[in-house]
Simulated scan of single mutants.
Amino acid sequence: MSRTFVVYESMFGNTRDIAAAVAEGAAEAGPVTFVEVGEAPDRLPDDVGLLFVGGPTHAFGMSRPATRDSARQQAGGPLVSERRGVREWLAGLDGRSKVTAHCFDTRVRVRGLPGSAARGMRRVLRRAGVTTGTAESFWVAGTPGPLVRGEVERARGWARGLAAAHGARTAR
């Protein structure tokens, strides 16, 4: 049985909360490792078959050092992810083609607002030869949050369904 790996970057804690719900949902189908991106290994363990990668949307895409500095100023204190972000982790990741990856982000719910960190992550993974699935956005009420009501439950169900489908495909 393969393991699911959930890697996340979070500034104010909203993406961490979504990532925790993703891990809970995926755990219904098998073992899960849940890790903040600063602690994530540069090479995925060989038993990982399903990867979920998440981060906040900053300036219409994945965070950068400058956008993380801006978030730090807004927070007035330490951030959840103080070191590298998913952009840097993905750039250095020794990917494997046998992994299926799904990406998620948190972003402010504004009609017509362009950009998605999740779609950017999916493009990077696809270019690296990783099989990619969905890119899903979860909504926050404002830059520091909170999450819109129901988003944690939606994240849990999203991951539950994807992990169950992945398990069914690999069992054949």
Rank of each mutant, 00 (worst) to 15 (best):
T100L: 15
T100D: 06
T100E: 14
A101C: 05
A101M: 00
A101G: 07
A101T: 08
H102R: 04
H102F: 14
H102G: 02
H102I: 05
H102D: 07
C103E: 07
F104G: 08
F104C: 08
F104R: 04
F104A: 11
T106M: 04
T106H: 02
T106W: 01
T106Q: 05
R107Y: 03
R107T: 02
R107G: 05
R107V: 02
V108P: 00
V108T: 13
V108E: 05
R109T: 01
R109G: 01
V110L: 09
V110Q: 09
R111G: 10
R111D: 13
R111Q: 12
R111E: 15
G112M: 01
G112R: 01
G112V: 01
G112A: 04
G112L: 03
L113M: 10
L113K: 00
P114I: 03
P114A: 10
P114R: 11
P114Y: 06
G115N: 06
G115R: 03
G115Y: 05
S116A: 06
A117P: 03
A117T: 05
A117I: 07
A117C: 06
A117F: 05
A117S: 07
A118L: 11
A118P: 09
A118M: 09
A118Q: 07
R119I: 08
R119P: 00
R119Y: 07
R119D: 13
G120D: 08
G120N: 07
G120E: 09
G120I: 04
G120C: 04
M121K: 00
M121D: 00
M121T: 01
M121H: 00
R122A: 12
R123Q: 13
R123V: 15
V124T: 15
V124M: 14
V124D: 11
V124N: 05
L125P: 05
L125M: 03
L125C: 10
R126L: 13
R126G: 12
R126E: 14
R127S: 13
R127G: 10
A128H: 13
A128W: 08
A128C: 05
A128R: 12
G129T: 02
G129H: 02
G129S: 04
V130T: 11
V130R: 01
V130Y: 03
V130Q: 01
T131M: 06
T131N: 06
T131A: 14
T132M: 06
T132A: 04
G133F: 09
T134A: 15
T134D: 14
T134G: 10
A135T: 05
A135D: 09
A135C: 05
E136V: 02
E136M: 11
E136Q: 15
E136R: 15
S137F: 02
S137M: 05
F138Y: 00
F138A: 01
W139G: 06
V140L: 07
V140H: 06
V140F: 08
A141I: 08
A141R: 12
A141Y: 04
A141P: 06
G142I: 01
G142C: 11
G142A: 15
G142F: 12
T143P: 12
T143Q: 13
T143R: 12
T143K: 10
P144M: 11
P144Q: 11
G145M: 14
G145A: 14
G145V: 13
G145S: 14
G145C: 14
P146H: 10
P146D: 10
P146S: 13
L147A: 15
L147H: 14
L147E: 12
V148W: 06
V148N: 09
V148F: 10
R149K: 15
R149F: 15
R149W: 13
